[in-house]
Design a protein around this nucleic acid. Sequence first.
DNA 1: AGCCAGGCACCGC
DNA 2: GCGGTGCATGGC
Length: 291
Amino acid sequence: MKYIIDSNNIIINDSSDFDIEHILECGQCFRFYKKDNRDYIIIAYSKILRVTQDDQQVTFHNTTEEEFQSIWMKYFDLGRDYSIIKTTLSKFDEHLQTAVSEKGGIRILQQDTWESLISFIISQNNHISNIRRVIERLSNKYGTYIGEIEDEKYYSFPTIEQLSIATEEELRALKVGFRAPYIINACEKVANGEVDLETVCCGNLLEAKKQLITIKGVGNKVADCVLLFGAMRYEVFPTDVWVKRIMEYYYFKEDTKIKVIDDFAKENYGELAGFAQQYLFYYARDLQIGK
DNA sequence: AGCCAGGCACCGC
DNA sequence: GCGGTGCATGGC
């Protein structure tokens, strides 16, 4: 995607496949702050970025070309042509076509694998607003101070080493609830190499998933989220309550096992299953479909 | 007040 | 292997 440099800002003029609200509010990431309509502060890779958008353009504030190329191009997946993905998915059926049309500004962020692992452990049986608050508390306590905007201080997501010092009592004090031992177990298994993030990220997919679900508190769905949102494994189809509901509502017309939905998605959407999932999830949740 | 949330571990069968 | 239940917390 082409960009232009305007003093301290980087600007994109073609935003047909980029909507900062869709990208952030679609449930894939948790470390952002809405300052105004289509005006967000994002924390990722130990950096703070402000993004604003209007009808003409997207502006990435106060960043350099070097930082933009090395971090944000990748983070926002700007090297990928989403118009092809959307066209392909729209051809499958009218429901997917509607979801893609309504939520066409979604892009799947290339987030950090470790941060995704902990974040989606926290996400289980939880509301997105609460997930975000818990992750913010974790970052404030165990992460590194990375700067401030308008008197608000921001902290990076804790590294494995930083989070490994946390005790169960401390974590419970941050209101992670029953997930406290899960986080500790994730720290242990990643630190001692039983779970190799390099494998999760770039190795054999089945081996990656096998390793992930050895962690207490990581089952099929959390593993799939880590693989999709933290490891660019676009062939996985995380099926949560919302995806289950919309798939039952549109396709199966009855209570359906997750395995059946998963197989259906893989067979139909193939390499694009992860993208399909995200359009469907955001669309369904926004409209409360099937609830 | 009771139900639910981007589920999972644990238990009984 | 499969289905039921409890789980911390907060919002509605």
